[in-house]
Amino acid sequence: MQDTPLIELSQVTVRYGDPDSGTLALTQTSLRIDRGDFVALVGPSGCGKSTILKLVAGLLTASSGGVLLNGREANCKGIGIGLAFQNPTMMPWLTIRENIMIPLKIVEPYRGQYARKKKGEFAEKADAMLARVGLAGFGDKRPWELSGGMLQRASLCRALIHEPQLLLLDEPFGALDSFTREELWDILQQLWMDTGSTVLLVTHDLREAAYLANRVCVMSSRPGRILEDCPVPFPRPRSEETTYQPECVSLIHSLRKQIADARAGEPTQENA
């Protein structure tokens, strides 16, 4: 049990649409993530990062290859997953608070208590999370009354509220200004250190990857696969200062170069 990684993708291929002529999104992708790890996934746009998250979440089945979650076939049922989608899909018929409480309505053990606690304890929990990401007082608003960045933060709350074992984040800070973003990095790092959950973070921001992750996986352009798996050895807790240290700057530089090469279509041979 100790040896089974939480997530294991082996030689996964994903083709959208028609099995022969559809878009090939992933080829021969392999990735192992241990329990309690924090992995960042970077790569050019359209290379299949969101596809990997959907595979792990069980929303998508691979055309070939194996996707194991906790040693078993991934199918949305096995373990508690929190997923913040790239587009914060907030349901317009619910208020922000109700949107954030959706996981509590579905996932055990909260599910059984939902009817009893939705007005009291659970609503307070949702409000506390909203306050933590700087959205205090927005619980009663409707999704269309919030800006894109505010919706992203609310979506992060929805991914976290049921304290999932596995957190899948798809560019959760993409629409935020750099100050809010750095504040949230800190919150996320703290949360991860406190709970010991496993995080897979998709991002375009290499500083973000270096700040948060234990490992950064670089993907090739479409059809995607993992080109490089760089460890990020800096001690925790990291702060914004960490990302300006010379070691970190050179790591970011080398990541940047790998992605640039991947975009140009030439798999990098560096460190290989």
């Binding site: 929303l59 949305c76 997953i81 989608f85 899909t89 349901m91 996981p103």
Partner: peptide, 13 residues
């Protein structure tokens, strides 16, 4: 929208 359904499916709904 399948996106809305996905929000619930992830949770094992």
């Amino acid at each position: 929208e399948p996106e809305f359904e996905d929000v619930l499916k992830v949770l094992g709904a």
